[in-house]
Amino acid sequence: MPPDFWAHVRVHLGLAGAALAIALVVAVPAGLFSAKRAAARPLVLGLVNVGRVVPSLAVLTLLLPVWGVGAKTAIAALALLAIPPIAINTDVAIRNIPMAVTDAARGLGMLPRQILWRIEAPLAFPIVLAGTRTAAVEVIASATLATFIGGGGLGEYITTGLQANDTHLLLVGVTAVALLAIASELAFTALLQFAGTKQRSRA
């Protein structure tokens, strides 16, 4: 185990976590907006998809002159990557709620905000969480690139390993990133299942 291993893991998870948090703050309202405004949907989803179409490395290069090197630029690029799956799942989750359900809610005398928080949010939650799971895996894998602009993380082992032809170091980096991605996938899956059973058993 190379020195500073856990510090690198912490930085890596920090980058990924910050990016995911920013993505959630942007993507959930964006998905909600596009679900409610059919006219705005192509524009919103088109914008959101920019994060998916442009390679992360290119985003880093583009942001470099603006924010310079360091974690901030890396987090922005990663957030851009995490936004599409969350926004698209939010949009689909809200639009998939049957008309009858929202019609009944209105007919029973619920205010728009009550419909949002008591009906739409809980019904959409599992699908939004599934989108977040996808985003988390992508972000953890891609956070490796942060090292190119001095953002740190486990990517440093990989770049150093490649440059120094140090297979051992390279493998440490690659394995650690893979394990983190798998762990995050499993954690989110467990969370989804827990949310499902909680919803089903709540009296």
């Binding site: 049957p98 008309m99 009858a100 359900v101 019609d103 009944a104 809610a105 209105r106 007919g107 029973l108 005398g109 619920m110 205010l111 009906i119 809980p122 019904l123 919803q199 709540r202 009296a203």
Partner: peptide
């Protein structure tokens, strides 16, 4: 309108039960 609806029962063909509630 909201107060009015709370005084009026409403039943539709598709039922529209809230699937996340008992």
């Amino acid at each position: 309108a909201v107060q009015l609806r709370r005084r009026i029962g409403y039943v539709i063909q598709a039922v529209g039960l809230f699937s996340h509630m008992t």
